[in-house]
Design a protein around this nucleic acid. Structure first.
Length: 178
DNA sequence: CGCTGGATTCGA
DNA sequence: CGAATCCAGCGC
């Protein structure tokens, strides 16, 4: 399969988060179907790391769309994001959960930390261009029903805490719990 | 340079 | 409910 074109990542994070549901995430020989995402809509979004401004860590979010933003959280989990929006517009979509498609996975994929661990994706792939191997996203099977809800674990985000920017496949048993 | 706390997960 | 485990961001 051909990776989704860079133009796919050009719209805002909310649109891309919704559009990524059902798409296939591939890393080397491992493939999963994305079933849960969250949109981080810009520097004004207090839940986004981009709200701290342009720093060494957030730099990639201010760059061109279609790149991976991967960071370490709680000292032990790597979370995978996709940068969206035009260059200079720091938006991103967190990939929270997926369904296994290949059998080579090293564990569960029903949570953002577990997903990257099962795929073997690490910070070494931060800034990687998702339009080229080994880490890519291709078209897949869209969900029948999509649920929109508040994001998980962003209680610190003030007025942005309850913004309904989380999307998931209502019929998938692989959506993260909570 | 020291301090604080986190887009999580698992086990008690 | 709290520990694990480490580093970004910030203040001094």
């Amino acid at each position: 399969m051909t990776p989704l074109p860079r133009t796919f990542y050009l719209p805002n994070a909310e649109v891309v988060a919704r559009a990524l549901l059902g798409a296939t995430l591939t890393f080397e020989d491992k493939r999963v179907r994305i079933v849960e995402t969250e949109a981080y809509v810009g520097p004004h979004d207090l839940a986004s790391h981009a709200s701290k401004g342009r720093t060494p860590r957030t730099e990639v979010m201010f760059g061109p769309p279609g790149r991976a933003y991967i960071y370490l959280i709680y000292g032990m989990y790597e979370l995978l994001n996709v940068v969206t929006g035009p260059e200079g517009d720091a938006q991103a979509v967190l990939i929270r959960a997926a369904e296994p498609l290949s059998g080579a996975l090293k564990g569960k994929t029903d949570g953002p930390g577990k997903l990257t661990r099962a795929l073997g994706v690490t910070r070494a792939h931060n800034r990687h261009d998702l339009c080229a191997p080994p880490l890519t996203i291709t078209a897949g099977t869209p969900p029948t029903r999509v649920v929109r809800a508040p994001r998980i674990g962003v209680d610190y985000a003030g007025t942005w805490r309850d913004a309904p920017l989380r999307f998931y496949d209502a019929d998938s048993p692989f959506v993260s719990r909570r």
